[in-house]
Design a binder for these strands. Structure first.
Lengths: 236, 236
DNA sequence: CGTCAGGTTGACCTGTGTCAAACTCCGTGG
DNA sequence: CCACGGAGTTTGACACAGGTCAACCTGACG
């Protein structure tokens, strides 16, 4: 999840994918690593009932692919027209041999940002719809937002259903939460895919979950733990 | 998540941890890899509100630790008296250099079983309490179950609250689901931590979610996807 | 035998999924 | 240029799964 981790010269090839088209070719079972150049990729999984879970969205600079392909497991699809470049297994091995430390770092990054995954997981487990959506928007703002006047402009590459599947809720609920944020003047909605964040602080507060429902139920962890976690600043 | 991935000779040292004690020493920020020898480790995260999320339980043979430590991120605690062995960074580098393929495999395994994580994630997002719990028990049976007569005996190392935090629900709900399974004669409960699975097939069916609530709402994925996923046999 | 952490059960209430209807955007063709 | 149509989105009404709070039970251990 680091920006521009690999230079163009180190990459095997680069290619375009149209909206909703998979990145992995059908027979492609190799442990290649991909890097998003432009656009947006979603890593997703279709489960038995036909349900879809979006594990994460990848934006320009993000790496993905290692230990994530293999048919029937996790697949990667373009959210919109997207360009990705690919580092094959041979290139990867070369990188690992040539510079162990860097190789390890790439492995780790490509293995998929445990940190982010853990945070996402914790959110899905505990938080309500409001906090989930605020968390998502907040992170999107940090990642994609451009300052416009004193507002933060964010263009959503994905549709509501994608967001819903990312946050473990229905697209109707996503829509309702959007409306709630609009009503409380925290954001403005321009077309259908463009948002203007008016009060980033309030958004971050919602994302941390410390404004309403404050006295959440901190389940009694038996052991010595339950140390105070410093409120990590999500807005950079 | 493979058994006995590393031989004792390759490991730096091994140590015991008492119930609810952390595996990582306070100052330990090195990228070491750990392997469970006996007992049970839980990887967990404490979020802002004091909520705990158990990301996964590690049983003998399981690897963990890479990209997972770092204070304030994810920590590992013993569920019960547990012995773990440790492979330090130098040992890891040696392994990577000596045998690239094996090194990569270790990296991947230690990076944390994306496959499993994806499945867990999908479950938490979509499934109800019944399916979540059945999925957990089923997997535990596969992993820890010993055949006793025509029953499958499973000893739970963890308490209800641990399971609850693993599955994103409350311990009361865990208890209720346990009772439901007992009432439907799918399992028997012996002491307080011992289960006998009487009808593994029924349990697996619940875990897949294809018995009740059958017509789940398969959200219309726009693209070409929505391929039929073959019902993966969860019972080995 | 007493104590207490851990577990069970019940009653209630709310958040969010479900179903249904209407509305908006945008591309396409007449 | 406008009408049309369909995908995507918003909004409403309603039901129910599961969280919350509270009381009680049980089994392990000193």
């Amino acid at each position: 999840m680091s920006k521009a981790f690999l230079e163009p010269s180190e990459l095997d090839l680069s290619m375009n994918r149209a909206r909703n088209k998979p990145v992995f070719c059908e027979g492609d079972v190799s442990g290649a690593i991909y890097q998003v150049e432009s656009g947006c990729i979603r890593l997703q999984k279709i489960s038995n009932g036909g349900h879809r879970t979006v594990l994460s969205f990848c934006f320009p600079g993000d790496l993905f692919g290692l230990g994530v392909n293999g048919p029937g497991e996790v697949d990667a699809e373009a959210v919109c027209l997207t360009r990705v470049s690919r580092l094959g297994q041979t290139g990867l091995a070369k990188l690992v041999h040539g510079d162990t430390r860097r190789g390890l770092a790439v492995m780790e990054a490509a293995c998929g940002g445990h940190e982010q995954l853990a945070e996402h997981f914790a959110l899905i487990s505990h938080a309500g719809a409001e906090q989930r959506f605020a968390w998502f928007l907040n992170r999107l703002g940090v990642r994609l937002g451009r300052p416009v006047g004193d507002l933060l402009c964010v263009d959503l590459p994905m549709m509501r259903a994608d967001i819903a599947d990312h946050l473990g809720m229905t697209f109707e609920t996503v829509s309702r939460e959007l409306t709630k944020l609009r009503n409380s003047k925290i954001i403005e909605v321009v077309g259908l895919r463009r948002l203007l964040v008016a009060r980033p602080g309030a958004l971050a507060r919602l994302a941390r979950g410390d404004s309403p429902t404050f006295l959440n139920r901190a389940q009694g962890v038996a052991g010595p733990a339950l140390r105070a976690v410093p409120g990590q600043a999500m807005i950079s």
